[in-house]
Design a protein around this nucleic acid. Sequence first.
DNA 1: CTGAAAGCGCTTACAG
DNA 2: CTGAAAGCGCTTACAG
Lengths: 340, 340
Amino acid sequence: MSVQEQSRRAPTLEEVAAAAGVSRSTVSRVINGGAKVSPDVLRLVSETIDRLEYTPNRAARSLVKQQTMAIALVIPEDTNRFFGDPFFASIVSGITQVLEDSDYVLNLQLTSPATPSAKTRRYLLGGNVDGAIVVSHHSGDEFFTRLDATMPVVFGGRPFHPEQHDIHFVDVDNAAGAELGVQHLISLGRRRIGYITGPADMQAAIDRTHGWRRAMRLSALDDSLVEPGDFSASGGAAAMRRLLERAPDLDAVFAASDLTASGAMGVLHDRGIRVPDDVAVVGFDDSPAAVRGEIGITTVRQPSLEMGREMARMLLGLLRDHDAQRSRIMPTELVRRASA
Amino acid sequence: MSVQEQSRRAPTLEEVAAAAGVSRSTVSRVINGGAKVSPDVLRLVSETIDRLEYTPNRAARSLVKQQTMAIALVIPEDTNRFFGDPFFASIVSGITQVLEDSDYVLNLQLTSPATPSAKTRRYLLGGNVDGAIVVSHHSGDEFFTRLDATMPVVFGGRPFHPEQHDIHFVDVDNAAGAELGVQHLISLGRRRIGYITGPADMQAAIDRTHGWRRAMRLSALDDSLVEPGDFSASGGAAAMRRLLERAPDLDAVFAASDLTASGAMGVLHDRGIRVPDDVAVVGFDDSPAAVRGEIGITTVRQPSLEMGREMARMLLGLLRDHDAQRSRIMPTELVRRASA
DNA sequence: CTGAAAGCGCTTACAG
DNA sequence: CTGAAAGCGCTTACAG
């Protein structure tokens, strides 16, 4: 911090008004849209604002407008896991992209999956933000449902509680997507297909399991080869080992995420099992994880960046107009690569 | 947004005072430390606060205290690249861990690597935050140097401009770390060692190149086998191909990041070149990327989580006391795995 | 130990 | 089209 700091003190509205020789009201008017200000006064004031590098004080403005111009990005998830998954990184990227063009600022609220910390609760309930985006919503806590009654909230992924009808979210049809992936495996002639799930407390994971089951049954195949995973690579590896133990003869694996698939493929590689020759693998997401390894992963694509963008757009819409669009289901598609 | 919203309107200090039958001053005092408040009044007011679920209005408090209680987390980097690298994810994790126990809130400022957007500039310079943490500092722009004159700033990684002496940062000794990695390769009997750099505009990358060069020269080895990378997996893969073209006989590669190493190993795998038998590989970071693939990557460890924590602690210190610790260099160590 | 009053920097009816 | 005034919800000297 340098010595000039004092002199750098941000100018106030008052000072701009004095410098321009007008009242505070007038300066305020030109800042807030220039409504009903004569052209020359407008020009004069604008110049003064630029010259003084004036920026309205956020707190003062918030106080009178009863708006914080801040949005909370709530991530009820272990940080490393969250950001370790490129799928979520893309979503955050999309969110920030559209917020960049708005006047809103994004507050990062990382909190434990189960119950949000007291600090986060107070913060969110204390009127510190105008709205919230909640990504990766686990079940277990009613907090976010309660939050939704307090301010506009958009969820990334359909929330767990089905009874909630007025909830806003952006998602894909996870069941249909999973079906797509499994069908691809079946169309390849695979019959002994294992499945590695996502976390049991996330709706997306549950829906994918439904899709897997439906696809298997439609083809009259055994749908019992299921092992729990958690969307992570290490979880995928562990599940793969269990699958191999149960069914050394399996010829394909469908994984609930690309990270899961990559972990599973590591195990396959270690055992000298060839992909896709011996075991074909399909993942879910089409995140960078799908192309990071030696073998490109065939996967069910979610438009993650666009989903993030849509979440932000939806919240902005709600902030502007309470009756904005309710929710949005985006399309999935199969992306073929080397693994299946 | 439900109908109860109106009734949910957050109570004000005034209302708490009325409910407790005391003045606003008194309520304010119990909130701000309970200084000089009689025991029974303190109890009464505290109960009222709890009952009404009162939380001080942030804007109002900011306005009078001339503090925002917000910290900017500035990431001048492509989001996907940034969060796609688990090393950075760990740093963010560490930062949020420490901030969780403070009264500060974290504002996410994702901005382009070269010149921060006008919005970000205005935001940071407009007195909207009390301090900033800048991670992944490229060269090219004087903005952050200027920012440092305005408020306390902590950099993740030693900034590019060496003339800046009063800068606060957390880093490792990148040159020494790189030397460690290369020496390991040499001790394994490798002689024809390639090197894949990081981005040329990041100080950490430059320092690692110095370390690599020093180690090679100390052993009188050819230090010309260098190809530029960018810390990403795909950049590592491309550089690996070039390296192989230039020197089909190389027996080791040192990569400036684990992600880079993983990309390089993918190419090696595709060509049927065995790791570590034919080519040994050492990475840098010890991020989850090092253990994600089929072959565990031997790497130079940076304590990323702890670095993030230290960055937050340092900024908190600066916010409390302007003469806090200047900078902190954390230790690196070699972590042996399968790749070398 | 407690309250009345001023003031933080804005916006917005209200007059003119 | 423009200015004076009130008020957003707090904190903090200042009296008592």
